[in-house]
Design a protein around this nucleic acid. Structure first.
Length: 332
DNA sequence: AAAAACTGCAACCGCCAGATA
DNA sequence: CTATCTGGCGGTTGCAGTTTT
């Protein structure tokens, strides 16, 4: 049985695409859409194999491609995702709308990898090269070495405990967990949850986080200084009338002020919001479906609630908050 | 100025899984 | 069940432009 290969076919062009070829392919796809790639060259009048056409479209001609430098936000995300997923570029690219797996792979190999090595961090393990292993992060190792056949969701479930109140980071599991994982867990989980939140249990040691994101969580007492969103009565949260109110269950503390509710307009999505004393930010929420969410991550998925004293408390409210759906979490 | 070394990136290659005949 | 086709993926190559020697 002979393997089908572009290279085995005769008279097919290889190498860089000419503007004329691009134009032919673009015209064809614009008119007929993406379908059977193997028939594209013939119909489009190209001396290329279908595979080559597909690649050219995906990596260069697609209209929704984002060009230019990677933003700092994108770089951070790639680093975090790579730590979780390893070289699964397609999965990483799925979280960066407008970027291709090839682009991210190239960027990693030519830039991020070197950047990490300069910082003395092993780009494969994301750990300090001089690390003598006495603070092993078994969970991250699990991610790095896990088979690609394990679904991402399952991997995350391995390390995080999800329940219907949100994401629990117990002292045993979270103390050595990179915040990138937490963040990613949230990203992944929040696709299906209308409102997702994190509860820090007392006793976790934020200092043992090994990424520079650790500072976000560096605070001595989470329970006393964070609004206790995990226990607020979601039944009483008001998702109607285009407003999002949390007005119960917040615990006061010495580091927070007297403000006891927050609300923001949901018309057209969350607007950036400041919450007195505790910087709350909901940026660009405009989600209506999982597809949209997955396709437009960067623009619509930074919904962080930043609480004072350099701690971060992440909430990921989802598209279903945008009016029609009012599912809320229930206490066990 | 020229050659060598380096860099970034587009494209190719080979493997794999799923679909289909 | 087997053979074949197809698309998707990650690793790798090779080229063009840039920098260094």
């Amino acid at each position: 049985m002979g393997r089908h290969s572009c290279s085995m076919k005769q008279k097919l062009r290889k190498g860089l695409w000419s503007p004329e070829e691009d134009e032919k392919l673009l015209k064809y796809i614009t008119r007929f859409g993406v379908g059977c790639w193997s028939s594209v060259p013939q119909h489009a009048g190209l001396q290329r194999c279908g595979k080559s056409c597909r690649l050219r479209w995906i990596n260069y001609l697609r209209p929704d491609l984002k060009r230019g430098m990677f933003s700092q936000q994108e770089q951070d995300l790639i680093l975090n995702l790579h730590q979780i997923l390893g070289n699964r570029w397609a999965k990483i690219a799925a979280q960066l709308p407008g970027r291709t797996d090839n682009e991210i792979k190239n960027f990693w190999n030519s830039c991020l990898k070197k950047k990490l090595m300069k910082q003395g961090i092993d780009p494969n393990t994301h750990k300090p090269i001089t690390d003598d292993d006495h603070v092993k992060d078994k969970k991250i190792e699990f991610f790095a070495s896990s088979s690609s056949s394990i679904p991402l969701e399952a991997e995350l479930e391995h390390a995080f405990h999800f329940n219907n109140r949100g994401l629990m980071l117990s002292s045993s599991s979270s103390s050595s967990m990179d915040t990138g994982l937490i963040r990613h867990a949230l990203l992944s989980k929040s696709v299906s949850d209308p409102l997702f939140l994190v509860e820090f249990q007392s006793g976790m040691d934020p200092i043992s986080y090994n990424s520079n994101l650790a500072a976000e969580f560096h605070q001595t007492s989470y329970e006393t200084s964070l609004p206790n969103l995990a226990s607020f009565d979601h039944q009483k949260a008001d998702f109607t009338n285009n407003s999002f109110m949390i007005n119960e269950g917040r615990e006061s503390s010495s580091t927070t002020n007297n403000s006891s509710n927050m609300n923001t307009s949901l018309s057209g999505g969350f607007q950036p919001m400041t919450f007195e004393g505790e910087m709350l930010q909901f940026k660009g929420l405009n989600l209506k479906s999982e597809e949209k969410f997955l396709g437009q991550w960067e623009h619509h998925h930074m919904h962080e609630v930043q609480v004072n004293n350099a701690s971060n408390f992440n909430i990921y409210p989802m598209g279903s908050l945008l009016g029609e759906h009012t599912h809320v979490f229930h206490q066990d």
